[in-house]
Computed example of a mutant assay.
Amino acid sequence: MKKFHNKSNIYVTQIELKVEDLKRSLDFYKNIMGFKVLEEKENSLILTIDGLTPVITLKQPKDVIKKIPKRTGLYHFAILLPNRLQLGSFLKNIKEKKYPILGGANHEVSEAIYLQDPDDNGIEIYSDIDSSKWIWEDKKVQMSNSLLDYEDLLSQSENSRWNGMPEDAIIGHIHLHVDNLEKAKDFYVNGLGFDVVMEMGKSALFLSSGGYHHHIGLNIWNGIDVGPLPQNSVGMEYYTIKLPNEDMMKETINRLKKLNYKVIEKDKKVYTKDTSGNLIKLEV
């Protein structure tokens, strides 16, 4: 499963979200989704899957406001489950708990279920179809939005129970609203080093490292030249990208600076911002 999420690739590992009500969010992420609490403070908490590794940080800002529509920021973050059986178990769990889903899809490279947390932060839960079955042509992967076979998925897991996130689940990818696709493409490809693996007309791009179907999705579905969310709004604070080694980190920082992209180095941590104001933490 982690063939495309290891130190030979560039990939997403963590996300920090701002929420309106920390207690409400904890109930959702722990009791509905099946994450574990790694660390809890008065205005923030860290969630884990394996009991050791931070995956999601939830933070309740002062004077927090609800999310404003039609802005840049998070479209969804995606949790990759180890297999189809687990995806079916998750679907059964959501159905039993009567939590609403937005829909599902068979993308030819994966099967996915979509929902939102209580603050309308988008979430995808998915499992990959075997990579030997992905169709590539001219270094572009074929993806679609076919109907998900819910009944077959449920039948695969009829004898299993959802016992929370399986320990080898990870963040598989992240999908972002941006304000200009070409500018975002330059940042992520020429700045961070991702490859374009699929283009959806002139409205969305999918980028990856090491031949994955996508580690990053970008779209302009909220509009062109729209602004970012206010700092005290619910939504994404930042997400983390892991780079293979220190040399790659130095090369990436130098490349970003040469292209006049913002690099923030503070307290031995490195951040950058894409062209739409999405904050990214860079780690080795």
Score class of each variant (00 low, 15 high):
residue 64 V to N: 07
residue 161 R to D: 14
residue 104 G to E: 07
residue 198 M to Y: 13
residue 246 E to Y: 03
residue 244 P to K: 00
residue 85 L to C: 08
residue 148 L to N: 08
residue 220 I to E: 11
residue 157 S to N: 08
residue 255 R to T: 03
residue 82 P to Y: 05
residue 203 S to V: 15
residue 126 Y to T: 08
residue 277 G to S: 00
residue 67 K to Y: 03
residue 261 Y to A: 14
residue 99 Y to R: 01
residue 219 N to E: 15
residue 186 D to A: 13
residue 174 I to G: 02
residue 234 V to K: 00
residue 84 R to T: 12
residue 106 N to R: 12
residue 42 E to N: 06
residue 167 E to K: 10
residue 275 T to G: 11
residue 112 A to V: 07
residue 90 F to I: 08
residue 201 G to T: 02
residue 42 E to G: 02
residue 242 K to P: 12
residue 6 N to E: 05
residue 228 P to Y: 12
residue 14 Q to I: 02
residue 270 V to F: 04
residue 12 V to R: 01
residue 150 Y to L: 08
residue 190 N to F: 05
residue 208 S to E: 10
residue 252 T to R: 00
residue 10 I to F: 09
residue 119 D to N: 14
residue 97 K to D: 08
residue 102 L to H: 07
residue 212 Y to R: 09
residue 84 R to M: 15
residue 9 N to Q: 15
residue 120 D to W: 09
residue 235 G to C: 02
residue 62 K to A: 10
residue 200 M to W: 09
residue 76 H to M: 01
residue 231 Q to Y: 06
residue 209 S to F: 01
residue 153 L to G: 11
residue 160 S to W: 15
residue 145 N to Q: 14
residue 134 W to P: 11
residue 228 P to F: 10
residue 221 W to C: 07
residue 274 D to W: 04
residue 14 Q to Y: 06
residue 273 K to I: 12
residue 235 G to P: 01
residue 249 M to K: 13
residue 163 N to M: 14
residue 185 K to E: 15
residue 98 K to G: 11
residue 150 Y to P: 00
residue 259 L to S: 09
residue 101 I to Y: 00
residue 279 L to D: 10
residue 282 L to C: 05
residue 97 K to H: 15
residue 36 K to S: 10
residue 128 D to M: 04
residue 181 L to Y: 03
residue 219 N to L: 10
residue 214 H to M: 13
residue 80 L to V: 07
residue 119 D to G: 00
residue 33 M to W: 00
residue 179 D to C: 14
residue 53 T to F: 11
residue 79 I to K: 05
residue 67 K to N: 07
residue 74 L to F: 04
residue 43 N to E: 15
residue 189 V to Y: 00
residue 90 F to D: 11
residue 111 E to L: 10
residue 72 T to N: 03
residue 3 K to L: 08
residue 53 T to C: 14
residue 236 M to S: 05
residue 182 E to G: 06
residue 146 S to P: 15
residue 99 Y to P: 09
residue 84 R to F: 09
residue 113 I to D: 02
residue 174 I to S: 02
residue 136 W to C: 13
residue 160 S to H: 14
residue 275 T to W: 10
residue 262 K to H: 11
residue 128 D to K: 13
residue 216 I to W: 02
residue 214 H to P: 06
residue 274 D to R: 07
residue 272 T to P: 04
